[in-house]
């Protein structure tokens, strides 16, 4: 088993954290894992992306050009990474921030309104990085729901209200992810 997941968005969207949660859940499940950030002269509001490699063998190259799963949280990320998805792979698109459909027929695409989920359940779009994490787990066989639920619970353990809200957002993302995969 080897899954390479690139998560991309704009700086400040929390996408690096989403990747970290994913990596921690994968580690807890006993997988080999590496989390690789895009680091460089980046700034808030610019593009930010990270790659999470989940494997049952020690991770070789942490540099991945053609990941089998790509999450695009905004249009610049979509434009940058649409063609990078490995044939047979999955492209998860945040449909709240872009109205696009990939022409590619060799990949699966799932459209999830990540910001809208967050707005509906919390009043703000700030937890779009949590809804997308749920959606990612829902539309892939990366990890069991319980593992990601556990990591998010640990992260917000000290803030029960924030936790409750984020778990709802995570679950809604997950459910829409499961549905989205069926509809794709």
């Amino acid at each position: 088993m080897l899954n390479e997941v690139t998560l991309a968005g704009f700086g400040g969207q929390g996408i690096m954290t989403t990747g970290k949660f994913l990596a921690e859940a994968a580690l807890e499940q006993g997988h080999e894992v590496a989390w690789v950030p895009s680091y460089g002269p980046e700034m808030r509001g610019g593009t930010a992306y990270c790659t999470v490699v989940i494997s049952d063998r020690p991770v070789g190259s942490p540099i991945v050009n053609t990941p089998n799963i790509i999450v695009a949280m905004n249009l610049p990320s979509y434009e940058k990474f649409e063609n990078a998805v490995k044939p047979g792979g999955l492209l998860l698109i945040n449909s709240s921030l872009m109205d696009v459909r990939s022409e590619r027929t060799d990949i699966t695409q799932v459209h999830i309104p990540c910001n809208q989920i967050s707005i509906d359940l919390s009043g703000s779009g700030r937890s779009a990085n949590i809804s997308v994490l749920g959606a990612l787990i829902g539309c892939t066989n990366l990890l069991p729901w319980e593992s990601i639920e556990r990591v998010v619970t640990e992260k917000f353990a000290k803030k029960p209200k924030v936790l409750e809200m984020n778990l709802k957002i995570l679950r809604r993302g997950y459910d829409l992810g499961v549905e989205g995969l069926k509809g794709s």
């Binding site: 590496a34 690789v36 950030p37």
Partner: peptide, 10 residues
């Protein structure tokens, strides 16, 4: 190098 310093692994 920067990659090994910046990446997270177990």
């Amino acid at each position: 190098d920067g990659l090994i310093a910046q990446m997270m692994e177990p």
